[in-house]
Structures are given as structure tokens and as C-alpha cells.
Amino acid sequence: MTVVALLSVAPVIEDSMASEVAAAVDALDDFDVAYETNPMGTVIEADDIDTIFAAAGAAHKAVDADRVSTVLKIDDKRAHELRAREKVDAVEDELGRDPKKER
């Protein structure tokens, strides 16, 4: 089974969040997860839900701020294994191209 999640961890501050977000992403390296960071969060893949929760909790705790906002969206497809890249590939197949638009 593969569990895919979107994790967003951010301090509630006015200044740049980059260093604290980097600390949250760095905390994921202590877990058996694959991840890819994007401008809105980090997509995480693991073999089980417990690993997702543990990694997300560690990322949340890694942020040093008085207030931290964390959002975790989980896709736990149990019928068969489907990796994050395969989900993107399916959309690209339907579009007949990469789902990107340059500005």
C-alpha cells in the first residue's frame, strides 16, 4: 500500500518563513518517506499511514515559532497501490501534455 499526503507546515509570522519551512522539510529525512516540495506544501509518500502521521508530526514540531499552522491531506487508496507520480501521469495522459502553463 502507498499512502500519499499533502503536508503544509508554516509558522504564523510576518517575515519570511523559508528557514522554518526548511526545518520542517528537513525533519522528513528521519523517516522512510519520499517527498517533493512545491510552493504550496510538500507531497509525501509512505508505505503506511502511521509513517505519514509520524513524519508530519516531526515536521510540525521542527518549526520554532510561537504559533504553527499545519495542514495534512491524506489519500489512502487501499484497493491498489498508486504512487503520486502515477496520479500526475494519469492527468497528463488525459490532457495529452504536461499540466503546466508558462506565464
Rank of each mutant, 00 (worst) to 15 (best):
Met17Asp: 07
Asp89His: 07
Val43Lys: 00
Glu14Ser: 14
Ile44Pro: 00
Arg97Met: 05
Ala58Met: 05
Thr37Gln: 10
Val25Gln: 04
Val63His: 03
Val43Cys: 07
Ala5Cys: 07
Ser16Ala: 13
Thr70Gly: 03
Glu92Asp: 06
Ala10His: 09
Ala34Asp: 15
His80Trp: 13
Pro99Gly: 10
Arg103Gly: 09
Leu72Met: 06
Asp26Pro: 00
Asp32Leu: 13
Glu45Cys: 04
Arg83Thr: 09
Val33Gln: 12
Leu28Ser: 10
Asp75Met: 02
Val91Lys: 02
Asp26Val: 04
Ala5Met: 08
Arg78Leu: 08
Asp98Pro: 12
Lys100Arg: 12
Val25Pro: 01
Ala65Gly: 04
Ala62Ser: 10
Arg78Lys: 13
Leu6Trp: 12
Glu86Ala: 12
Ala54Met: 01
Val63Glu: 03
Tyr35Leu: 09
Gly57Gln: 09
Phe53Leu: 15
Asp47Thr: 10
Val63Tyr: 05
Ala62Trp: 11
Ala79Ile: 10
Asp64Cys: 04
Thr51Lys: 04
Ser8Arg: 15
Pro39Tyr: 06
Asp32Lys: 15
Ala79Gln: 12
Glu36His: 14
Ala58Gln: 04
Lys87Gln: 09
Ala5Glu: 05
Val25Asp: 05
Pro99Gln: 03
Met40Ile: 13
Arg103His: 10
Asn38Ser: 13
